[in-house]
Write a protein that binds this DNA or RNA. Sequence first.
DNA 1: CCCGCTTGCACAATCGTTTGTGCTCTGTGC
DNA 2: GCACAGAGCACAAACGATTGTGCAAGCGGG
Lengths: 384, 384
Amino acid sequence: MKPPNHRTPDTPPGFGSATLAYPVTLKNVADRAGVSVSTASRALNGQARKYRISPATEKAVRKVAADLGFQASQVARSLRLKRSGLIGVIVPDISNPFFASIAREVSLGVEAFGFSVLLGDSREETEIEQRLVEQLRAKQVEALLVCPVGVDPDHLVKLDRSGLPVVVADRVFDGIELPSVTSDNRTAARAVAEVLIEQGHRKIGVLSGVRDSLPAKTRLQGLTDAAQHAGFHLDPSYLAGNAFTEQSGYDATLTLLDRHPEMTAIFAMCTPAAIGAMRALAERGMAIPSDMSIVAFDDHPFAELMKTPLTVSVQDIPRLGRLATAVLLKRLNVNPSTDSSTESSRQTLPPLSTPAEIEIQSSTSLWKVPTTLLRRSSVAVPRQ
Amino acid sequence: MKPPNHRTPDTPPGFGSATLAYPVTLKNVADRAGVSVSTASRALNGQARKYRISPATEKAVRKVAADLGFQASQVARSLRLKRSGLIGVIVPDISNPFFASIAREVSLGVEAFGFSVLLGDSREETEIEQRLVEQLRAKQVEALLVCPVGVDPDHLVKLDRSGLPVVVADRVFDGIELPSVTSDNRTAARAVAEVLIEQGHRKIGVLSGVRDSLPAKTRLQGLTDAAQHAGFHLDPSYLAGNAFTEQSGYDATLTLLDRHPEMTAIFAMCTPAAIGAMRALAERGMAIPSDMSIVAFDDHPFAELMKTPLTVSVQDIPRLGRLATAVLLKRLNVNPSTDSSTESSRQTLPPLSTPAEIEIQSSTSLWKVPTTLLRRSSVAVPRQ
DNA sequence: CCCGCTTGCACAATCGTTTGTGCTCTGTGC
DNA sequence: GCACAGAGCACAAACGATTGTGCAAGCGGG
């Protein structure tokens, strides 16, 4: 890269100096070591024994390589090996800590195997998501982890069928055809809903995320379960909103407040929506939890310090990320549990961490990680 | 990639079917169109005019390519062109929204030019940062945006000297040798400090980030400026902490509380530290702002809803990210301001956004973006 | 002394692009 | 009728790695 303004170190004048000039190729190493390119390659790749390179030669080559700061071009290697060492990660919004954490776990988990993460941010738009997929496909990623915007999974399924392994996280789909990992949203939703119901709430407004997404459907299901168990029925008119955003939560809250003044509690399907709801309530001069109780999903460092700490169901995001990573790695046929001192990563540095203690049980294609309930002060007995 | 279990479409039997088999090469397209590989390449790359490919041929090739779903292998192209189309982004913690936002802006800003972002998370450790740099170098990234852990910039400087453009953001260094972009921390710090001083605070504890980092030094400088202007002197013993983390803020607060019971205000150099401080104060049973005033940096959606919304100086993070991206692109000799309908990105999709309205003024290598002050309720007149 | 086996390495093909150069036509002007 | 220009395309050499195969020594046994 950047051909101009470097001296290429073909036959450097002062033997032994060899300050790093950027593109040091295998040929440079070979020449300097007085061997052929193939020998140099084998010496560096631990193939010495197999191809009977003498220990002396191997050592010499290694030394020259080190002196020259040789780094094998992954591009060339990729071409020859038909393996890019790249994994694409596409999320709706990387500045959302939830997705950032997932990206982080993937990045941390795969680098031990010499993979790097190509990041894509779809900005919650399906069209951009598709463009990103194409772009990453052209970059020859070996697998894709997608947290989809939430609609139209078809292009992902097609992609997977065409031979590019795709794993879906969080925003999984119904009638699933792709390996997916998500939280146990139904149980989680039921748990938070029951906090409300125990206190006597029956008129519960729901701030929904993308309606077609499985998380939204499943959380609604959990709420319905709880209602049913308590012997009442949830009117669909108490449902509003159609996105996992603050704006959606704000708008939906106002809508519900107008539509159902008798409402005593809010069930927010995500943190941004809860924030939006709190803004809306503040504008209407309503206090939490005295005028309105509220429950939500996911926690945050700030949460504890809030005026009214939210009662939430918290997902184990890192675990979700690690599970997704494990599934990804499994589909790539690299063994997450193998001791990583093997030559799998060749010249790349030794593993930074043991990738995942996750057991991929069974052959299901939908994995769920458990959640925990955090009861805090945002729920009270309904006023009247 | 993934050679097995696809039919290669060399000469597909049913003409016209051509469902996507994964590796469709240029040769396949050429064969099917009845031309040579070189002609196919030129037809697809808009070189038709220059190399006198007949419009008919060009059209035919394009059609075949479309039918086959041809995507040029970026790996092969990279090898030939000596351009990977990859940009490395290394941050200390991608799950921190601050860095996530920066990564996001870079990703958004460069994709219009056909670049993709390779993400690295250094986990606030210099050693890992260095490993990531090596890994990304091997992947042939064309440039690197680093938010360093904060110490030992030497390897970055060396890298840049060796021909790989490096841009530093946020955690810039003193005696700078690399293009850097950061906020105007001195002014920002002075502004928040003055909020404290105006109310009469003089015994101000400082929760510092990494001492050697320029942000920490500069923010301290801003505080010192304000103190000096108000005619008093800040005792170094009021300084504690040495990291941009919650833990550091917590520990430092306890330390200062013990060391200086007369302290009436806290100047936290980052949000995590402020959170740590609030935890510590809560444990000691101290209320904000009645028992202790506090100011900090950076805002957050949650901030408004906190028990005591913090008075903070907020950085324009997206702008910072965009500026960094612009500097990056400039160093890569792609023109951020050019209308992007040029053939710069070839077969890659049309630009998703106008990359940056940023004016890169002058040839300075340190750029600063302005900040704004948010006065909220975390500051009061000192008790006694 | 010669044959054959082992050792240690070099040759060359290959991955899928891009691009400089050269070949073959067709048509035109004289 | 012929040379020549230019249009339209094919050939082949890179890019930097990996890897199957072939070739030359060295050695021992007969």
